[in-house]
């Protein structure tokens, strides 16, 4: 009988991962000293582990974050961090004004410090009418900003999860407001997630028809991610 027969495969794997208790480690070491086959087996396991690690040390660069030739990596990284940082900041800001008792500085007013046109996507994933009302106000303030020559601001409101009910033809308390806003502003777009529609139908038997002004996207989350990648500022509620 070889020493290998006393030691299970799981023990050997734990041995090379240094997950065995000291006593068991010593047991394996002793067995290896007596059994050349066991030594070979351990050696092979370790080699495969190293091989696997080496195979993924350098993976293909993400296409969406691939830097143009000549641009320093750190520059690209800094831009990415800034982009995420601005999105996160605005996102947290949206959270903070919805939870504060103090009169909030609006997102639209915050944007008045910027000279360029802005593109903002509001991600509505909760059925929170009060927060949504504020978002509609903010969205209108952004798309209506004509006085200071920023009328080309674009706003998209993407709903998924329970947020979809706010765009429902039957259940939305904002039917008239959404209709008026859609008729008045071409640069304000409402979109609902068809994945959520299917899920609600499948899991809860609910058929949620969207308002006629609301377009449908395959996945709300991926639509939001796609817009973020295209440079849109992200504000979740």
């Amino acid at each position: 009988m070889t020493e290998m027969e006393h030691i299970t495969e799981e023990m050997l794997n734990a041995f090379i991962d240094q997950e065995l208790a000291d006593n068991d480690m010593m047991h394996v070491y002793l067995a290896m000293s007596k059994d050349p086959d066991l030594r070979d087996r351990v050696c092979e396991l370790r080699a495969n582990k190293e091989l696997l690690r080496a195979a993924y040390r350098q993976v293909p660069a993400p296409r969406k974050y691939q830097r143009p030739p000549g641009l320093l990596p750190r520059t690209a990284m800094a831009a990415g961090i800034m982009s995420l940082g601005v999105g996160a900041l605005l996102g947290w800001y949206a959270h903070s004004f919805s939870q504060s008792d103090n009169p909030p500085r609006t997102v639209a007013r915050a944007y008045q410090t910027f000279d360029s046109k802005v593109k903002v996507v509001f991600h509505v994933s909760r059925n929170d009418a009060a927060a949504f009302a504020q978002i509609l106000d903010e969205a209108e303030a952004l798309v209506a900003a004509e006085d200071d020559k920023r009328s080309n601001n674009s706003v998209r409101i993407v709903a998924n999860g329970d947020g979809l009910f706010l765009l429902s033809a039957k259940a939305s308390p904002f039917k008239d407001r959404i209709r008026i806003l859609s008729e008045k502003y071409n640069n304000l777009v409402f979109a609902g997630c068809s994945q959520t529609q299917k899920r609600l139908q499948r899991e809860r038997g609910l058929s949620v028809d969207l308002l006629p002004q609301v377009s449908t996207v395959n996945s709300g989350v991926f639509e939001v991610l796609r817009l973020q990648e295209a440079g849109w500022k992200y504000i979740p509620i």
């Binding site: 993976v59 293909p60 993400p62 296409r63 969406k64 974050y65 995420l84 996160a88 996102g91 989350v221 991926f222 939001v224 991610l225 973020q228 990648e229 992200y234 979740p236």
Partner: peptide, 18 residues
Amino acid sequence: NRSLAEDLTQDTLVKALQ
């Protein structure tokens, strides 16, 4: 798959922030 890996990474970071 690069595209799926990118989406998975981004989705993870967005959810983590939230």
